[in-house]
Simulated assay, not measured.
Amino acid sequence: MANTKQATKRIGVNENARLRNQAVKSDMRSAIKSVETAIHEKNADAAKEALTDAVSKIDKAVQKNIIHKNNGDRKKSSLMTQINQIAK
């Protein structure tokens, strides 16, 4: 338990940031899931449409330091590789 007013405030600030980060991360994961679903159904057009949304959400998470830049790049590369494989 916090002993000072400052520590109490930090607990609140950290909780708000955690909730904000959690929402962005969840949004990103949902967008990735929609791309993976389209890939699983072998629907290249739907996958490409969903990819633009997913890339945007991944970039937003990277900008906000919720995930590391390399992690974001790896996620985008993986999705694009999978789409290119089903587009053949």
Results as ranks from 00 to 15, higher is better:
residue 11 I to K: 14
residue 74 R to N: 11
residue 78 S to H: 13
residue 15 E to Q: 13
residue 17 A to E: 13
residue 35 V to Q: 05
residue 59 D to H: 13
residue 67 I to T: 03
residue 75 K to H: 09
residue 27 D to W: 04
residue 1 M to S: 14
residue 30 S to L: 13
residue 63 Q to C: 01
residue 56 S to E: 12
residue 69 K to C: 00
residue 84 N to H: 10
residue 88 K to C: 02
residue 24 V to A: 10
residue 41 E to L: 12
residue 11 I to D: 07
residue 55 V to L: 06
residue 83 I to L: 07
residue 82 Q to Y: 03
residue 25 K to Y: 13
residue 34 S to H: 08
residue 18 R to E: 08
residue 37 T to Y: 06
residue 72 G to N: 03
residue 69 K to A: 15
residue 5 K to M: 07
residue 26 S to P: 01
residue 79 L to D: 02
residue 30 S to E: 11
residue 58 I to D: 01
residue 75 K to M: 15
residue 88 K to M: 07
residue 40 H to M: 10
residue 7 A to S: 15
residue 62 V to R: 02
residue 13 V to M: 08
residue 48 K to T: 06
residue 60 K to P: 00
residue 25 K to H: 11
residue 27 D to F: 04
residue 27 D to C: 05
residue 12 G to E: 12
residue 72 G to W: 03
residue 56 S to W: 05
residue 55 V to K: 13
residue 24 V to D: 10
residue 9 K to G: 02
residue 73 D to C: 01
residue 33 K to R: 15
residue 68 H to M: 07
residue 64 K to W: 06
residue 21 N to K: 05
residue 81 T to P: 01
residue 58 I to V: 15
residue 36 E to V: 02
residue 56 S to Y: 11
residue 79 L to W: 04
residue 74 R to A: 13
residue 81 T to S: 14
residue 49 E to N: 14
residue 6 Q to C: 00
residue 34 S to C: 04
residue 58 I to P: 00
residue 21 N to W: 04
residue 53 D to E: 15
residue 54 A to W: 02
residue 38 A to M: 07
residue 63 Q to H: 10
residue 25 K to S: 11
residue 46 A to V: 07
residue 53 D to C: 00
residue 8 T to W: 10
residue 43 N to E: 11
residue 43 N to C: 02
residue 31 A to H: 01
residue 87 A to M: 09
residue 17 A to R: 15
residue 23 A to L: 09
residue 11 I to S: 06
residue 60 K to L: 09
residue 23 A to W: 05
residue 88 K to G: 11
residue 11 I to N: 06
residue 67 I to A: 02
residue 48 K to M: 09
residue 47 A to D: 02
residue 48 K to H: 06
residue 44 A to H: 04
residue 58 I to T: 07
residue 17 A to N: 13
residue 20 R to F: 15
residue 44 A to Q: 07
residue 22 Q to A: 15
residue 43 N to Y: 04
residue 12 G to D: 08
residue 39 I to G: 05
residue 68 H to Q: 13
residue 48 K to L: 08
residue 71 N to H: 15
residue 87 A to H: 03
residue 30 S to Y: 10
residue 71 N to D: 14
residue 18 R to D: 08
residue 64 K to S: 10
residue 26 S to C: 03
residue 3 N to T: 12
residue 64 K to R: 09
residue 37 T to V: 10
residue 25 K to P: 01
residue 79 L to I: 05
residue 18 R to Y: 12
residue 7 A to V: 03
residue 70 N to P: 01
residue 15 E to D: 10
residue 55 V to R: 11
residue 56 S to N: 14
residue 8 T to N: 14
residue 76 K to C: 01
residue 54 A to T: 01
residue 17 A to T: 10
residue 68 H to E: 14
residue 71 N to P: 00
residue 24 V to R: 07
residue 10 R to N: 11
residue 58 I to E: 01
residue 6 Q to N: 09
residue 57 K to A: 07
residue 48 K to V: 01
residue 71 N to A: 10
residue 39 I to M: 05
residue 66 I to R: 06
residue 52 T to Q: 10
residue 12 G to S: 10
residue 21 N to A: 06
residue 34 S to G: 01
residue 50 A to T: 03
residue 80 M to D: 08
residue 78 S to T: 12
residue 63 Q to T: 10
residue 14 N to K: 11
residue 75 K to S: 09
residue 82 Q to V: 02
residue 33 K to E: 12
residue 19 L to M: 13
residue 1 M to C: 07
residue 83 I to W: 06
residue 13 V to Y: 11
residue 69 K to P: 02
residue 54 A to D: 01
residue 85 Q to D: 15
residue 50 A to V: 00
residue 41 E to C: 00
residue 78 S to Y: 12
residue 34 S to E: 14
